Computed example of a mutant assay.
Amino acid sequence: MRPSARIPSLLAALALALGGAVIAAPAAHADLEACQNHVQGQGTEVTDEVRMACYVGLVGDQSACAEALTKAGATNTAATEACRLAPQ
């Protein structure tokens, strides 16, 4: 194989390897569970509102997550910490 043909082949192999790492990444539900478990551990029942708030925290809107969790009955401290856990 010519050297000029090897470089694109190596780059393609690298791209496929990195793509496989993305596919093998852990599922996002683990982060949602950490958020939900924290809120539940602080005495708030995990409802659909709590699940949705944790999802909002997962996608990166920490202030909206905390606001929704406090509306669902969590304390400000528990909501802030749970939303911090969501995207990790």
Rank of each mutant, 00 (worst) to 15 (best):
D48I: 13
A72M: 09
A86E: 02
L16Q: 01
L14K: 05
L10S: 11
T70K: 11
A17F: 05
Q62G: 09
Q40V: 11
L69A: 05
G19M: 04
L14V: 13
C54H: 03
A53Y: 09
G43A: 07
T80C: 01
V39R: 10
A12G: 12
A53M: 10
A27S: 13
L18M: 09
C83R: 04
A28R: 07
A17C: 04
C54W: 07
A15M: 14
T77S: 11
A86D: 03
A79H: 04
D48R: 15
Q40T: 11
G73R: 05
E67H: 10
D48C: 03
A78V: 02
S63V: 08
T70I: 07
T75R: 04
S9M: 14
A28E: 12
D31T: 09
A12N: 07
A64M: 11
A64D: 14
Q88V: 09
E67T: 14
H38W: 12
C35V: 07
A68S: 14
A28Y: 08
Q40L: 13
K71E: 15
A25F: 06
A34M: 09
Q36L: 11
D61W: 06
E67N: 07
A13K: 06
I23G: 00
R2P: 15
A82Q: 08
H29G: 11
A13N: 08
V22M: 06
S9P: 00
L32F: 11
C35R: 04
D31V: 07
A17H: 00
T80W: 01
A72Y: 03
V56W: 04
A53F: 11
Q62R: 14
G57S: 05
G19C: 02
L58M: 10
Q88Y: 12
A12H: 06
N76Y: 05
G73C: 02
M1H: 08
M1N: 07
V46A: 09
E67I: 04
A78F: 05
L18H: 00
V50Y: 11
A53N: 09
V46K: 04
G19I: 01
T44M: 06
A53L: 08
L16K: 00
N76T: 09
G19W: 08
G43K: 01
T75G: 13
C65S: 02
L32A: 06
G20Y: 07
D48L: 15
K71R: 15
A66Q: 10
M1D: 09
A82E: 02
A30L: 13
T77W: 01
I7A: 07
L11V: 15
T47F: 10
E45G: 03
L10T: 13
R84T: 14
M1V: 08
L85W: 04
A53P: 08
